[in-house]
């Protein structure tokens, strides 16, 4: 049914390839997040699915139907824009009903759908307000209501929360997620915020420079990143990815630093690093106390790394400690940044 299949999608702007051979599936009723730094092509992909941008090569299919060249209005998608795209001269009611009026939906039907949508997002009291008189969160709700009344099976969201403050963002994130599950929408959600991706996504498509770095559920991306970029993009603070040749002294570290070529890199998540009796000798540069945890920024010779310690660590800048990690928590990346899984025999 209305799942989305993207095959070999390309967007070429003259000499620049904004989207380069991207393929992925969005199963029906699931939420896929397109995640990546700005300029990675995630919004362009979304706009190509919506039909607002021409496709240079490849295909987009919704519900098994090829819609690559189809008019945007015929694709069965609705979209929430980063700026919400509310019509400033129409009140909330008219904004929500705009699409239904264009499509000449019967008056009685319009009213019931309006009432339902307004109730779902809590706008009943504000139907006669003008957009200029609404707060950021309320405008966001109007944009959501517009999507809901359209009853399109596919919903596209282009960084919908980036104009909101942190508290409201968390609130609206939950609300969008709740609506998506309740209405069983097939949703593609674009963001550069890893928290949104981790907390909402059924599947994350991580993009960099127009190419897919990795596809998978949030846990898979976090636990087995396929590339050094994926490893560092997800997680706060990011994974320590350390060049092998900067470990000056390997003796006494046991399985912490496996044998690997000098141009490979070794990755360890900060929360997997512990203060211990033995291990890598480091000097503490800074201590960031966050309440539930403490982030230590340390160096060992030319090597800089971060460690996340639960609770409050009783260390001061300048202290000398030893840090250790379990061999199972090591991620190895080769000279091209690709993940390499080592055999057990090799790690020991």
């Amino acid at each position: 049914m209305p799942g989305i299949e993207i095959r070999n999608l390309v967007k070429q702007w003259e000499a620049f390839r904004a989207v380069d051979d991207v393929s992925f599936d969005v199963p029906q009723g699931s939420l896929t997040v397109l995640l990546g730094p700005s300029g990675c092509g995630k919004s362009t992909i979304l706009r190509m699915i919506a039909g607002l941008e021409d496709v240079s090569d490849g295909t987009v299919a919704i519900g098994g139907r090829d819609i690559t060249r189809q008019d945007a209005a015929q694709r069965g998608v609705s979209m929430v824009f980063q700026s919400y795209a509310l019509f400033p001269h129409l009140n909330v009611r008219e904004n929500i009903l705009f699409g239904l009026k264009v499509r000449r939906v019967a008056k009685a039907d319009q009213e019931t759908r309006l009432a339902e949508a307004a109730a779902l997002v809590g706008l009943e009291e504000l139907l006669d307000r003008m957009p200029a008189k609404l707060s950021g969160g309320q405008r966001q709700r109007v944009a959501l209501a517009r999507t809901i009344v359209s009853s399109q099976p596919v919903c596209l969201m282009d960084e919908p929360l980036s104009n909101l403050d942190a508290k409201l963002r968390a609130e609206m994130r939950d609300e969008i997620h709740r609506l998506q599950r309740k209405l069983k929408l097939t949703m593609v959600y674009v963001t550069h915020d890893q928290t949104e991706a981790m907390s909402m996504a059924d599947e994350v498509v991580l993009l960099k420079d127009g190419r897919i770095e990795q596809i998978g559920p949030p846990a898979a991306l976090y636990e087995t990143p396929e590339t050094a970029f994926a490893a560092r993009f997800l997680g706060m603070p990011p994974m320590n990815v350390m060049p092998m040749d900067k470990f000056s002294e390997r003796t006494g570290l046991g399985g912490m630093v496996p044998d690997a070529p000098a141009n490979w890199r070794l990755g360890v998540r900060p929360e997997k690093i512990h203060i211990s009796e033995q291990g890598l000798p480091v000097v503490v540069d800074a201590v960031d106390y966050m309440g539930a945890e403490t982030v230590l920024r340390v160096h060992s010779g030319p090597l800089e790394l971060m460690a996340r310690i639960d609770g409050r660590a009783l260390v001061e800048p300048g202290d000398e400690l030893r840090l250790s990690w379990a061999p199972a928590d090591i991620h190895m990346f080769d000279d091209r940044g690709k993940r390499r899984d080592l055999d057990r025999s090799e790690t020991n």
């Binding site: 039909g51 209005a73 979209m79 980063q82 795209a85 001269h89």
Partner: peptide, 27 residues
Amino acid sequence: IPPELREAARLEGATRWYFFRRVLFPL
């Protein structure tokens, strides 16, 4: 006039004339 307004209307299936009459001209 932000270009997203035209895009939002386009996704709803508004013709150019409808968009002009209901959105552009009033604005």
